[in-house]
């Protein structure tokens, strides 16, 4: 798969583990060692109890599309349009909503409430970017 054009992310102490796991096809979020709450994006502190000890938890299983957009504008040279961007939430993981591309169905079939599998695709700067897959 050709890499998706875009702007690569700056990698920080907080976000490094997410992008490293993404390269392995895994979706990880921060989880508080004290209260167990998960949060995203990573801040190095628990957004629920403000605990400072965070571990990384992998989310597996299917997600649900909370909202979406289908972009039609070619913002950068070489950008293939249209494409769907989905905001995905995961059952049993409150506090986590991840934005990513959608594949596995035509963009116009993307819908709120649809079920998706976790996935990644080659993105700008050699990063793997979230790319959810429409569940059959």
């Amino acid at each position: 798969m050709d890499a998706t054009p875009g702007i690569p992310p700056a990698v920080t102490e907080e976000t490094g583990p997410f992008w490293a796991a993404a390269r392995e096809g895994r979706l990880v979020v921060e989880q508080c060692a004290s209260c167990g709450a998960e949060s995203f994006p990573p801040r190095g502190i628990c957004r629920s109890c403000r605990g400072r000890t965070m571990v990384h938890a992998e989310i597996t299983g299917r997600g649900t599309v909370y909202s979406l957009t289908v972009n039609h504008q070619r913002w950068l040279p070489g950008l293939q349009v249209p494409y769907a961007i989905v905001l995905v939430e995961f059952p049993g993981h409150p506090g986590v909503r991840v934005a990513g591309r959608l594949r596995g169905c035509p963009p116009e079939e993307a819908a709120i409430g649809m079920t998706v599998d976790i996935g990644f695709e080659p993105g700008p700067g050699g990063f793997a970017i979230p790319s959810f897959v429409a569940a059959p």
């Binding site: 702007i7 690569p8 700056a10 976000t15 979406l68 957009t69 972009n71 961007i85 934005a99």
Partner: peptide
Amino acid sequence: KPVAEGPLAWLLPIGMLSPVCQVAPYAAR
């Protein structure tokens, strides 16, 4: 900018390249 920082680090890499892409899911929901 060569890289996307802050909240944009989660948006520009996946193709939410303009404020319109970023606010559109809010409008849809």
